[in-house]
Simulated scan of single mutants.
Amino acid sequence: MSVDPEGPVLVEGPVEIVLADGTVARSDRFMVAVCTCRRSRTYPWCDTSHRRRERADPPQPEDRTP
């Protein structure tokens, strides 16, 4: 198992996770990223929603002097 403070918990699979409502999420993958931030749309699996989204600066108009 590997824990990244800025991201998911990586667990060697296969993995079964019992959710709060009693349902069981299963993955047969050899390595599974489990979401810890709860931002994932595929919770309990990580979809990298924890990554900060940065907007690129809008292009600046060129300074054209006649």
Rank of each mutant, 00 (worst) to 15 (best):
T65K: 13
P44A: 02
D21I: 09
W45F: 15
S2G: 09
R64Q: 13
T65S: 13
V9D: 01
V3W: 09
V24P: 05
G13R: 03
V32D: 00
V34D: 01
M31L: 15
P14N: 08
R52K: 15
G7C: 03
T36C: 09
V9H: 01
S2Q: 14
A56V: 06
G22L: 00
D21L: 03
D28H: 09
E54H: 11
T48R: 08
R38M: 12
R38G: 07
T48A: 11
Y43G: 02
D57M: 10
V11F: 06
R53D: 11
G22N: 05
C46G: 02
R55T: 00
S49K: 01
T65H: 13
M31N: 14
D47G: 03
R52W: 07
M31P: 02
R41L: 11
P5K: 07
T42F: 04
V11N: 03
P58C: 11
H50C: 02
L10K: 05
F30K: 14
S27H: 09
P44Q: 03
H50S: 02
I17Y: 01
P58Y: 08
G13E: 07
P61H: 11
S2M: 10
L19K: 15
D63V: 03
D4T: 15
V15Y: 02
R53N: 09
V32L: 05
A33K: 01
V3R: 10
R53A: 14
A56E: 14
Y43D: 02
L19Q: 13
V15R: 00
W45Q: 03
R52C: 03
E62S: 12
R53G: 08
D63K: 14
T36P: 01
R38Y: 09
R52N: 07
D21M: 05
P8E: 04
E6W: 02
R53Y: 10
M1G: 09
D57K: 13
L10V: 10
A20F: 04
P59Y: 10
R38S: 12
S2T: 14
V18N: 04
L19T: 14
G7A: 09
E54N: 09
P66I: 00
E16I: 05
P44S: 04
P66D: 08
V18F: 01
T48K: 05
R64P: 06
A56M: 12
P59S: 12
V3S: 09
C46A: 09
D63L: 07
P59R: 14
T42E: 13
V32C: 05
V24M: 06
P5T: 14
E62F: 08
P8F: 02
R52G: 07
P58D: 09
T48F: 11
P66V: 01
Q60E: 15
R53H: 12
E54F: 11
T48E: 11
R39C: 11
V32Y: 00
P14K: 07
V9Y: 00
R38A: 12
